[in-house]
């Protein structure tokens, strides 16, 4: 295999983008999967996409547009899902379709060629800029730092939210923090993976890890490994087979999920055996 391609700057950037994107998407994916909030995540992803298109149309940074829309949609969806004022599926579905409608509207109103806008659909890890990479690295650092600093609060909220609130943990703040982290992660990865594909990279590695362990720490580590492997293997497949990189990454992550499900020890719940207590 010819490895000379690795000496090119664009490929080095792509590998780093895959590393950071794989880490951060998988970490927030663990929150979303464990809390059963997959549909909320899909909705936030589409909001970010619509925001980025608005930025492109009006001539400001797509990153800022994506950030504003993803955080804005989180601020709307979170309380709606939380308070049960409306059926969450219905209300999230309405916000989701609205965001998709806005995305197509902004795209339709855009004058001239829409190459950049279309690239936001499926992303382009091979053309990631230094600025995108720095933003993605910073977001990864912040998300990982927050998880390390607030691990016990996050564990309590994603596994036992009602209990967390009852024992005096600021569970609502932690919950919204996790949703906002999802929005920021999606924004940072939009350019690399693409608005239509980003959510698979959030969901698939975490869902695959969920099949394999009963430990949250291990689930985070496995999800991160799967996320990074998906990005790098997808990148390699993209280069070798001359196929779109975003699609290759997402398909790789879906294959990993399929394998994890087939070989999941959790499918054999009756076969579970007690492990002697630690210490």
């Amino acid at each position: 295999m010819d490895l000379s391609v690795l000496q090119y700057h664009f490929m080095q950037n792509a590998i780093l983008a895959g590393l950071f994107g794989g880490i951060t998407c998988s970490v927030v994916g663990v929150f979303v999967v464990t809390m059963h909030l997959s549909f909320i995540g899909v909705c936030i992803a589409h909001a970010a996409f619509a925001g980025a298109l608005l930025g492109l149309w009006l001539g400001f940074s797509p990153l800022i547009g994506a950030l504003l829309f993803s955080l804005g949609s989180t601020a709307i969806i979170g309380p709606v899902a939380d308070r049960g004022e409306l059926n969450p599926d219905t209300s999230i579905g309405i916000v989701f379709s609205l965001m998709l409608g806005l995305a197509f509207l902004f795209m339709g109103l855009m004058p001239g060629a829409r190459t950049e806008a279309l690239s936001l659909f499926w992303g382009s890890i091979l053309t990631v800029t230094q600025q995108d990479l720095i933003f993605l690295a910073a977001v990864t650092g912040v998300i990982v730092g927050l998880v390390v600093a607030f691990y016990k609060e996050i564990q309590a909220v994603i596994c036992h939210r009602g209990v967390a609130l009852a024992v005096g943990i600021p569970a609502t703040i932690v919950f919204y923090g996790l949703l906002f982290s999802t929005g920021v992660t999606i924004t940072a990865s939009l350019q690399t993976i693409g608005g239509l594909l980003i959510y698979s990279l959030i969901l698939n590695p975490a869902a695959a890890a969920y099949q394999l362990t009963y430990s949250l720490k291990k689930m985070l580590l496995i999800a991160v490994a799967f996320g990074v492997v998906s990005c790098w293997a997808g990148l390699a497949a993209s280069y070798l087979l001359d196929i779109p990189s975003g699609a290759a990454i997402v398909i790789t992550s879906a294959i990993i999920f399929g394998l994890a499900t087939v070989f999941s020890p959790k499918r054999k719940v009756k076969g579970w055996r007690q492990v002697p207590p630690a210490g």
């Binding site: 016990k152 309590a156 596994c159 036992h160 024992v167 005096g168 943990i169 969920y210 009963y214 959790k266």
Partner: peptide, 28 residues
């Protein structure tokens, strides 16, 4: 606070010892 038995996802990634430890987290 102890509520009535709730439906819990059997795949939830947390064991009994960790769940009990959550009781300490508020005071910690």
């Amino acid at each position: 606070y102890v509520a009535q038995v709730e439906n819990i996802d059997p795949r939830l990634p947390i064991n009994v010892r960790e769940t009990v430890m959550v009781g300490c987290y508020g005071r910690l």
